[in-house]
């Protein structure tokens, strides 16, 4: 593989996207696990949508909602001086939204699995609800939360459809590794395609092995 830009871009995009999706995802997971409010089912459905939607459809919605003619896109351009779409930021956004449901669903299951007697003990011990969450619930659920974030990272790293729709396929700018693999196959550049596929496959296997390890070991 001559050009390593797509690999480093993919790592950067996936890492930042995972930070965003992990923070937001764990918060949403906590809200869905503990909150009793109207519209909880709807919120859960919306957050899960990226798993079931074709990535290109997800990308289409992002493009129409963030594009230069959309209110969000216009507001972004007036603040940052350049459009949001077809940039690395757009790629990060697409990857983060693809990763979010994995963080939320796995994280929610982990939070719901925390023994409620521990949380009761924490309240009796005088911890505020915020400290119960931060000092007991989330630390006890940490392995499941980490597993969800790891799955989210793998998903973010591997996204093709949403990214190509909203960030485009600009070599040296927004071309991530999965897109570079596609391009290489189209151009009959087997070496690049093989190396890219091997890298993405290898990282995915490592992440899944790690996830299995997280889920096996008890807290």
């Amino acid at each position: 593989m001559d050009d390593w830009y797509p690999f480093w871009l993919s790592l950067r995009v996936a890492t930042i996207a995972t930070l965003v999706a992990g923070t937001l995802g764990i918060s949403l997971a906590y809200l869905l696990a503990k909150g009793r409010f109207r519209g909880r089912g709807l919120l859960e459905a919306i957050v899960t949508l990226p798993i079931v939607l074709p990535p290109t459809v997800l990308g289409y919605y992002l493009l129409t909602n963030l594009g230069v003619n959309s209110p969000v896109g216009r507001a972004w351009e007036s603040v940052f001086g350049e459009p949001l779409v077809f940039t690395v930021t757009a790629a990060i956004l697409a990857a983060a939204i693809s990763a979010l449901p994995f963080c939320v669903r796995t994280g929610r299951a982990a939070i719901e699995a925390v023994d409620p007697r521990l949380e009761a003990a924490a309240r009796v011990a005088g911890l505020s609800e915020w400290r119960v969450a931060m000092r007991v619930t989330i630390p006890v659920a940490r392995r499941g939360l980490a597993a969800g974030v790891a799955l989210g990272f793998a998903r973010a790293l591997g996204d093709f459809g949403a990214t190509v729709m909203v960030a485009g396929n600009i070599p040296g700018r927004t071309q991530t590794l999965p897109i570079a693999v596609y391009d290489a196959v189209q151009a009959n550049d087997q070496t690049t395609a093989r190396t890219g596929a091997l890298l993405l496959g290898g990282i995915a296997v490592v992440v899944l092995l790690g996830v299995n390890r997280f889920s096996r070991v008890k807290p």
């Binding site: 023994d115 007697r117 521990l118 009761a120 003990a121 009796v124 005088g126 630390p139 006890v140």
Partner: peptide
């Protein structure tokens, strides 16, 4: 609230924070 009642509680299996 539980926090403001200032009671101490011991459960059957301790319910210690494992982490």
């Amino acid at each position: 609230s539980t926090q403001d009642r200032r009671v101490g509680m011991v459960a059957q299996h301790g319910a210690l924070f494992p982490h």
